[in-house]
Structures are given as structure tokens and as C-alpha cells.
Amino acid sequence: MKSSANRRWFLKSLALAGAPVVCPTVEADETDGHESGATSSGTMGVLMDITQCVGCRKCEYACGQAAGFNVPPIETFDDRAVFENDRRPGPASYTVVNRYAAGESPERFVKVNCLHCNEPACASACLVGALQKTATGAVVYDPWKCMGCRYCMVACPFQIPAYEYDNAFTPQVRKCTMCADRIANGARVPACVEICPKECLIYGRRDELLALAHDRIRQHPDRYVEHIYGEHEAGGASWLYLSDRRFADLGFVAVPAAAPSHLTETLQHAVFKHWAPPACLYGLLGAIMWLSRRPDDEPKTSPAVPTMPPRLKGAVS
């Protein structure tokens, strides 16, 4: 293979420069800004332009390689039979590409993976903090903290985290990491973005990706639906989708704009606000206990009270 970093860098610039005749070259300068953002505080993300995807599934291959899964040779990914059924990411695949055909309109391909929510329900649900939203935007998993309760799987509105049920001793929750490790070790973009031959995947700062996506919709209102999936869903996500077809027809679940964790965290923190509610309940019950005590009650005087507890007297006096 050629120097893949250079090739990727070239293609990357090309993509943002408007190879798909979408963006003016102005965007290319900003690309540098995007890239350096990965190491600074900017929240990064990926924009998938569904109209550009040809369904080559190279991203599945690269992802499996990067994640250390046992991946078959790259040629096997040309097999289009897998498109017969919709697939889901699983414990041995962080991403899958599904095909959607609708009558005469051209077939569309959707890459499914963790959306890396801005306010991840999985991370809010995890009782030991095994799932964390990092400063770069990736939601990452720490198996050493995990208890394996799988509440993250209940909480995720996109049904992404997968579990290694087959592993008896050290099962893990598995999901896309947006190549957090790779990028920490110097890679510029996630493996799937790097290998994508059509440049339908763009890695960059989320706010700039959003601006780019809005720009494309504005310039081509005839081509795109006016909806960026991931902009608002579940409080917004790092992963964004542009499409020329309704997202409901492409296997996307309808998710309200409010982050699921808002309500639970509000309830939770209200119940424990300054520890006041539990303390008040404790005090109230203590007061009732004190006021309702019957110091005159002696077991022998009342046969209806066969077992006047000696410890009760100790408790209230």
C-alpha cells in the first residue's frame, strides 16, 4: 500500500474541498482547523452523507481491523448478499452497512454504529462510570470498571451497545469507540473514515460538520431532506447523517430531541438535593416515633400486646 496517511490526507481535503460538487474551496482551509481540533478541546464527530455511499463495506473491514476483531479478507466484503437482511452492530462488529431500496429510486446505504451522543444515556445510566464521554466527543468503555449489569443497553435509545454473552468470565460491552485509542496514538481520523473511498464520511469538529451539513442542504434543497439526523436526536450526537430520503425509511429510529438522561438525572438529583429530602423523611419519621411512643404500655397490663418489645423502650427513650 502507498503511504496511506498522505493518500488519506489528500482525499480528506478533496472531500471537504467539494469533490462531490457541494462545497466551495473555502472549506478546505478550515479542514486544517478541524484536524487540529482532534487534539484540542473541540468535540469531534463524523458526518455521513448517505447520498455518497456506494455500499462497499470497506468501513466494516477497516473497523474490524482497528478494533482487533478477527476480520476475514477484504475481498469477502464485496459480497452483496449480506444486504438481504438488515444487520445490527454486535459484539464482534462495531459497524455494519445496510441497504435500503425503495421502488425506482436508487438504493441507499446506511452505516450503523454508535452515534456518540453529546449527553449519552448509557454513560448516565452506568453506575460505576465505565462509559464516559471524552473531551474529544467519543463515548468510551472501561471494562475494568464494568459490572456487566447491561443497564447501558436498556438506556441507549439507538440500541447500540452489544454484549459478549458468549464470554463466561470477562464479557464486555462492545460498541464503536470512534477510534479513540487510534486517535490518541496519532491517527488523524477513525479507521472507517480513513478507508472510505467515496469520502462520504467526514471527520471533523462537530460544529463545523453541522455548518457544512446545513450548507449542503441550503445549496441543494432538491437533493437533501431538511433534517440532519444526530443534530438534535437524544440531545444531539457526534455522529451526523445527511440524507436524500426520509430517515424513517432508512432504518433510523425516531428519537425525541431531549436527552433521555435529563429527566432521570433531574428526578435523581431532586430526591437527593443537599441530602435534604432523605434527611427530612428521617427526621419526620423520628418525630412520629417520638410522639407516638406509649411509655405507659407495659406488656403485663395489656394481654392484647403479647410481646411488648423490650428493645422498643430502649429505642424511644
Binding site: 452506568c126 460505576v128 456487566g148 464470554n167
Partner: peptide
Amino acid sequence: LGRYYNIWHPALPSMWQGNSVLFE
């Protein structure tokens, strides 16, 4: 629990996650 041997983890202050209902 998949990792039942970690059932004691919520007792470790370093792993406390106060936003989690399950933690409570």
C-alpha cells in the same frame, strides 16, 4: 451480572456515578 466479581465496585468512591439511578 456479566462481571459479578465487580459487584463491589459501587462501594469504591472513585467509581461513584451519582447521575445513575442504578447507582442509587
